[in-house]
Structures are given as C-alpha cells and as structure tokens.
C-alpha cells in the first residue's frame, strides 16, 4: 500500500516556511493572497498503516514541534492535513509540487535509508513533495501564476491545484 505522510507544525509553533512562501508570493507581485501554509509530504509505497505511523513519528516529524497526517495515496486529494489546523469557513487551495518521473530525488534516498535504519528492511519506494496551502478567495489564474512562477520549477517538477474547501 502507498501512504502519503504530511508533516505539519503543532499548534502553537510557527509555520516559518509557510510565512516565507507568502513573502515570496508578494514579491512576485501577487497581492491577492493573505495567508499561506506549507507541509512537506512523503509518499511511501510498500508499507502498512502501522509502519506509516512509526515512520511518521520516528523519522519524518519532530516529536516536539511537529505532527503528521497520513492518507492513503488512492484517497481523494481533498483530504489533507490543513483541515486539522484551520477552522472556519475560508476557502483553501492546495498546490502540490512533486518531482517529474525520472528526476533524481535525493531526499527520498535519505528517507529510504532512515526507514531501513529503523528496522523496516523490506523494499520501499519513497517520493518527496511539497504542499502549499493558499487561503482565501484566490482565482484559478492567480493560483496557476503562483504555482508556475513561485512554487514549482516546471522543468523538473509537476504541480496540481486542488480546491480543498
């Protein structure tokens, strides 16, 4: 089974990367966005749910400042961890950025090593990605511009835009 493990700051801890993304978006001349969030995400194929929990806790998240959110890769992309962080009814889009097929993903190699060090010795495949949350009423064209000019290097990365709420 393939699981996606998304890493989020615990409540009370600042999302520094998310804040920096907002600054980058504003510097690109896009003024429509008021709030952003960021989560690294790891797609791991060949593990059980219990192993995903162990990997999320022991390797991928910081036990003190971060939490993690697991989804089956096959489930709808609308089910993302930002729902745990954000209450209220404001609109939320997620821009996901992943490497294109064939591009070397060096961090994934480190994660595979760490999983083996943890004692899970069977073969696993790992992909690393990024989820950027864009809060507020932002139009599709603006989201496309954010994705292509700020968030993704389209030469080596694919992106997809999902409306979460």
């Amino acid at each position: 089974m393939e699981y996606e493990i998304e890493i989020l700051p615990k409540k009370g801890f600042t999302d520094l990367h998310g804040a920096r993304v907002l600054s980058d978006i504003m510097q690109a001349g896009i003024k429509d966005v008021k709030k952003t969030g960021y989560s690294p995400v790891y797609a791991i194929d060949g593990i059980t749910k219990a192993e995903a929990d162990l990997i999320g806790w022991e390797i991928l998240s910081d036990k003190i400042t971060e939490t993690f959110f697991i989804t089956e890769s096959s489930t709808t992309a609308k089910d993302r961890g930002c729902k745990e962080l954000s209450s209220g009814g404001e609109k939320v889009h997620a821009i996901e950025v992943w490497f294109k097929k064939g591009v070397t993903d060096t961090v994934s190699e480190s994660v595979v090593k760490a999983i083996k060090d943890l004692g899970i010795t069977k073969e696993v495949k790992v992909k690393t990605g990024h989820i950027y949350y864009i809060y507020g009423a932002v139009g599709k064209q603006v989201l496309e511009k954010i994705a292509t000019t700020v968030l993704a290097n389209t030469l080596i990365q694919d992106y997809k835009i999902n409306e979460l709420r």
Binding site: E58, I59, L60, D62, T106, V107, S110, V111, K113, A114, D117, L118, G119
Partner: peptide, 19 residues
Amino acid sequence: SYGDDIASGKILANEIKNK
C-alpha cells in the same frame, strides 16, 4: 549530516540510536 534531509541531524540520530 546526510544533507540535513528531513531535519538537521535527524537521519544520523535515527541511525546511531537504532544501530
């Protein structure tokens, strides 16, 4: 260590602790 992948020191800490 290990390019600070995931987080600084995390992969080496995991390696040393478990092995």
